[in-house]
Amino acid sequence: MCERDIRPADLGGGRLRPSLARRTAESVGRHVSEVLENEDLATADGLLQRIDPRAKLLAILLFSVTASLLRSPWLLAAMFAIALALAAASAVSPLSFARKVWGSAGLLAVLLAVPAATRLVTPGPVLVPLGALSLSTPGVLGAVTLVLRVVASAGTALLIVWTMRWSDLLGALTRLKVPDVIVATLAMTQKQIVSLMRTTQQIHLARESRTIAEGSVAENRDWVTGRMAFVVRKSIKTADDVYDAMLARGFSGSMCLVARVQGGRRDWAYLAAAAATAAALLGIDRAMLR
């Protein structure tokens, strides 16, 4: 085939919507680079990076549950503020952290919460009179609580995910007595995801590079689903090969990992601090209710 690498944009169509293939390639590419950047972030020198991944895994659970139990929007906001401070102390730019959290989970929550603030959905005394769309006091409070709760949960989870290498996470799971077969599967899944995402990105870029005009919707769809089928075939073939490769190196049904990060007393001190923070938040929350 004669490939000349002409893109719609080169033909003066710069204001055209980016093609489907390009959009997919870019979003997949963003995910790949996110995985690679996480690796850098997780090995940077910072507060959270120095903590044993086991302590962090337990903390992620602890804070997710805490965020779900708090009732005061103030305390939920405080949780997010704590996450921001920890981000700053852990070589994570607070700005990009906040942008990520508010841009995805936060934005969605806002969109969902706004209609619920009206008296139509949540009856109660009027706070903002807007005729039929008047906002009720419990509605507004509920909407604010929902948004802050979503942001606080997503923030703490993301912060810990960003400061923990995937391999350390797996090591932590092993040492928390998660069955080896699960850890092994997770390890392989992550690696294969990166590899399949790269394939997917290449497929879409290759398509983009020889597309001059986009075809009909049905043609595009056939192409997309055909590529999905390709990914399926490749996966199943790879699964067989990987299994052989594991057997060849003595795989006997269980994975073993060497603990390279040694947990110390300090890590448990951090975990205790996290637990104390969570308990304090919950305590204040309950006190505020009375």
Binding site: T24, S27, A184, M188, L196, V217, N220, V232, A239
Partner: peptide
């Protein structure tokens, strides 16, 4: 049997990656 590890991992990986494909439905 023991083959479950790679097959489930690859099944999970393609489940994950398939969710990333943009499927054209109608119009744009």
């Amino acid at each position: 049997k023991a083959r479950q590890v790679p097959l489930m991992a690859l099944g999970a990986a393609f489940s994950f990656v398939i969710m990333m494909f943009n499927v054209p439905v109608i119009g744009g």
